[in-house]
Structures are given as C-alpha cells and as structure tokens.
Design a protein around this nucleic acid. Structure first.
Lengths: 160, 160
DNA sequence: TTTAAATATTTCACCCAGTGAACTATCTGC
DNA sequence: GCAGATAGTTCACTGGGTGAAATATTTAAA
C-alpha cells in the first residue's frame, strides 16, 4: 500500500521538507491534542496556554509566547479561569498587568496534559527519545529567535 | 535584554519544548508566508498547495498530504485555477479523480515561492543549513508517519 | 449487461479561533 | 495632577476549516 504515499521527497528542498513537516506535525498535534482535551472541556488555545503556564506569566508575555494577539489570550485565560484551572493576580510590580497562575487543580491538569502530550508526541511522530531531544533543541532555538526578534507577530514587529 | 524572554526552558520537558517550538515555527511561517503571498493574491492554503505541487497530484492525495478535508483542497485548488496557476486534468487511470498540475505560470510562481520560503525559513528560524537538514530529516519522518498511519485526519483514520 | 456498492470530488451551511480597533485602568515623568 | 505610554479587555468581523449531502465514475457481481 501507500504507493504514492511514500512520497518523492527528493522533489523538495530541505527547507520545504522542513516546512511541510512542521505543518503536518502542528496539525496532527492540534488534532490529537483535541482528542485529549482533558475531558473535552478545553479547546486548543486553552491547552496551549496550560502547557506554557509552568510558571506564572503576565498576559502580554503569554501573548508573545503563543504568538497571538493579546485578545486571544484574554479569551483563553477566561475559559481556564471559569474552569478554575487558573487564577488572575495583579502583578505586584505593575498594577496594570495581570499574572496568570495555575490553581492547584490547574497544576494537576497540567501534569496530565504534559504526560498525555508527550505520549501523543511519540505516537504521532514515531521519533525516538533521542530524536525528540534533537528536535527539542532546534525547537528551542527557533522559539527563542522568534520571540526575541520582535515576534513578527500580530503586533507588527519588523526587525529589518 | 529580553529579560524574561529568554525563558526558563528547563521548566519544560523536551517533548513540550518540541511541541511549543513547532507551534511557534508553524505560526511564524504562516504569518510570514502570508506577507510573501505572491502579490497578495494567494492565501495560506493556496501557498501550501503550491509548495506541494512539485508534481501533479490527485485531489484526494493533496488532502491527505495537507491533512485537510477534501473540501478544503477543492477550495484552494479553485482559487489557484482561477489565477491560472494550476490546471485540472482527468486522471487517465481513474475517471473519477482529478489531477492537479501546475501551469507554466504556476511553475514559475512555485519557483519563487520555494525560494522565498527557504529564505523566510532561515530568517525565521535562525538555523544553520546543517540544522535545517537535520530538521528536514525529522520532518520527513514525521510527515511519512503521519500520512501513513491513516492520518488521524479529518477523514477519520483510526489505525488501532 | 444491468445493477449495486464503493470511491473521488464538489457544494454548501455552519463553526471556531483569531485579529484589530476602541475602551478602561494604571504607571511614568514632568 | 496632567500628558503620554503601556497592560489588558470587549466586541464586531473574517478566514480557513469541517461535515453531510449530491454528483460522477469505477468496480464487482449477478
């Protein structure tokens, strides 16, 4: 089977290969993350937030990290708060800012999510642990670069 | 600089790191690809299709490869056809299927897109060529795995 | 060969996530 | 205290995507 499924990858430049792979992986992760979705209560954006919230973060920070507009984070945070997984606290340093931090319940949920996500990651990618590490290193570089370089994000960054 | 931007990555498991990185990269690529968007005529999905169309493909195949529902491909293909970048041809082997192939113009556009995409890829990721190769290898594995494993996709694949 | 079941694609109504602009609240400096 | 910047929220709107029903064609069977 999978006649033409085992593609002619040589048709594509490494860069395009990488891009296509990233698209695929992203899509797969979103889908399957969806299935987990902690009892179906959480949407994709909420899961993403939960994953990032290993430590308390300001809303704006979350927006930068997730590469979304602040308003998107607001929405997701509201949902998480409604579910009692997250708490809003004023930032002591800056009264304008809100710190988002996990509740006890939230921490538990995150634990589960992290575990499931890892499982799902291996299922989806079929990568070995070592390969995952490799990918993680690259991913980290990319993420940092992206966030730092003004994050061409919704927020109009151009770092010409 | 970038005080809390240079994150505490050790807070995250490698898997989560990888996942976050993939999300970021995906997002960045979509955004910036958007900017290129060949004179602003093409949407994200059209670009993706164009990238994949290194060789003629059947609609269904494209759906599987892009991990989208067939209807999504139909829409994107229609746009590309309207722009004269792509041509629909009946599959000689199977009269029900359509083959989507690039026109001359389409080939040119794809050339440009591939070049731009590569540029953008390096800009975005900040990776070296070697690292890109590494990523490409992983990406290919992932992509193949995903497509083969019945692509948990919109098309209800369960490969239990 | 006629018929029935399967497969490839399209059409269309609907949905969700995300953006961007306008608004409120707070901080900073004068 | 006031002006201007910054953090976050609200809300109307959009775009990309899904899923079910319809159409065309192939395949298998009688």
């Amino acid at each position: 089977m999978s006649s033409d499924t085992s593609e002619n990858w040589d048709l594509y430049t490494p860069e395009v290969q990488a891009i296509m792979g990233v698209f695929t992986l992203h899509w797969q992760l979103e889908q399957r993350l969806n299935e987990i979705r902690l009892e179906g209560q959480l949407g994709r954006p909420e899961c993403q937030l939960l994953l990032i919230l290993a430590m308390p973060r300001r809303m704006g920070e979350l927006a930068r990290l997730t590469m979304k507009a602040p308003s998107a984070v607001t929405a997701a945070a509201a949902t998480l708060e409604r579910l009692g997984l997250v708490r809003r606290v004023r930032d002591a340093q800056d009264g304008r800012a809100w710190l988002l931090e996990l509740t006890c319940e939230g921490r538990k949920r995150r634990e589960t999510l992290v575990t499931d996500a890892a499982q799902l990651f291996y299922d989806t990618t079929g990568l070995s642990r070592a390969e995952a590490e490799t990918l993680a290193v690259l991913a980290q570089k990319i993420h940092n670069k992206a966030v730092q370089s003004g994050a061409v994000g919704p927020c109009e960054g151009d770092q010409t």
